[in-house]
Amino acid sequence: MRAAVLTVDEPSLLVREVPDPTPRPHELVLRVDACGICGSDLHLAQAYKAQYPGVVFGHEFCGEVVAVGSEAEGYRPGDRVIGFPLAGCRRCAACLSGDVAKCPSMTLNGVQRPGGYAEYVAVGALEAFLLPEPVDPDLGALVEPLAVALHALDRTPREAGEPVLVLGAGPVGCAVALWARALGAGEVVVSDPVEGRRRLAESLGAATVDPAKEAVAEEFAGITGSAPRVVIECAGAPGLIQHASEVVGTDGHVTVVGVCLKPDTFSPAVSVAKELSYRFVAYYRRRDFARTIAQLAAGRLAADRLVTDRIGLAELPQRFESLMEPNNDCKVLVHPNR
């Protein structure tokens, strides 16, 4: 099959012929319909490519079952499923509660195991969710980033109807904005310096602020009538935790979703003076996937607006490099079998 593999040279990805996956007893093999390009893949390619040569990225995928392992139950060829890319030991407390990300032996499709930047991918039958009939495969590939956003909001203390400030209008920031509106936030304000991304956030029902030209806290107060008490940082750039501490109000809370791979600093004095609380979040739980799928099936999340482009596997290496530079894209989907 064809797959985009990570190289130690430039470009970061090259499309090559690699062996087709064969299902282990408890696995399914999927013909990949769609796989999202995640910012974490871009970060890994920039900072850690020497550690993962030859890996096939892609942990946001949906596909059709083409092979079923001898002990895999509940699926048959022709079923369309969404891959839950985290696999654990299935025995520890974290796994049994559905919080697989906290399993000490957790592995991830697209890092420790081959991912969805390929024509086919293997996933455990227990790490798969059936795609409901009303949901198309492109939306299925959005379940993973939407579950990240839902988990972040679920871990954020906030009152019903309370306004929310989101820093960053990339895929995760826009997904947080989408979920925040769906969950009843009184107003969602998104801060991003890129005009195209602000326009996308506005199409999702958010108000926007340009932090390069406007005072974020003042603009938020002008829109909502109060200082932000809830700030969700979704960009993962150095300096944003400090920025969040400066714009959030007294007794406020900051949730950090963005993964900054560089050393970062912030002034504790600001946080102490305001008596702020922080929470760092990662991944999601199985119930976040299930809830996201249910909301998509019910038509309650207009997630298709997050998709700004669809490409074939041959186009992926060049597009992957371009996404490392400033751009207006939100979620780009790869269709490996197009």
Rank of each mutant, 00 (worst) to 15 (best):
V65K: 05
F57G: 09
E219W: 00
G110R: 03
D304F: 00
T208M: 03
G36N: 02
G78W: 00
L42A: 09
D210C: 04
G249W: 04
R279L: 10
L261Y: 15
A67V: 10
G83V: 15
V68S: 08
T107R: 14
E144R: 06
P132H: 02
Q51H: 10
R158P: 00
C95Q: 10
G98Q: 07
D288G: 02
E144H: 06
L126I: 03
A237L: 11
K274N: 02
G39M: 01
V231K: 05
D309Q: 06
G88C: 10
I223E: 04
K49C: 11
Q318W: 02
A152I: 03
A297W: 01
G63E: 08
G69V: 15
T308Q: 08
R155L: 08
L261K: 13
P132Y: 04
P336M: 14
C38S: 10
E119P: 10
L240G: 05
E315S: 12
L130V: 11
R199E: 14
A182E: 09
N109V: 00
K274G: 01
T250C: 07
A282I: 09
A94D: 07
R31W: 03
Q51D: 13
A169G: 03
G54S: 08
A125G: 15
L13K: 03
T7S: 12
V32K: 07
C38D: 04
V148T: 12
F129S: 12
D251M: 10
K274W: 01
I232H: 12
D304L: 06
H43Y: 07
G69R: 14
A169V: 06
C89H: 08
L13Y: 05
L131F: 04
L240Y: 06
V56S: 06
A212K: 11
F220M: 12
G83R: 08
D154I: 01
P163M: 09
A302E: 10
A206H: 06
G236Y: 07
V68Q: 09
A180T: 01
R113I: 00
V66D: 02
L165Q: 13
G58L: 05
E325V: 03
R305F: 08
E187D: 13
V123E: 01
Y117W: 12
P132N: 02
L142I: 02
L14G: 13
Q242K: 10
P193N: 09
P132E: 04
L142W: 01
K331L: 02
G252M: 05
G63F: 07
F320I: 00
E64N: 05
T292A: 05
A50S: 15
V143G: 01
P163A: 04
G312Y: 04
L323F: 00
V68C: 10
P211L: 11
P145E: 13
D41H: 10
S40L: 12
I311C: 04
R279N: 09
G249H: 13
D288V: 04
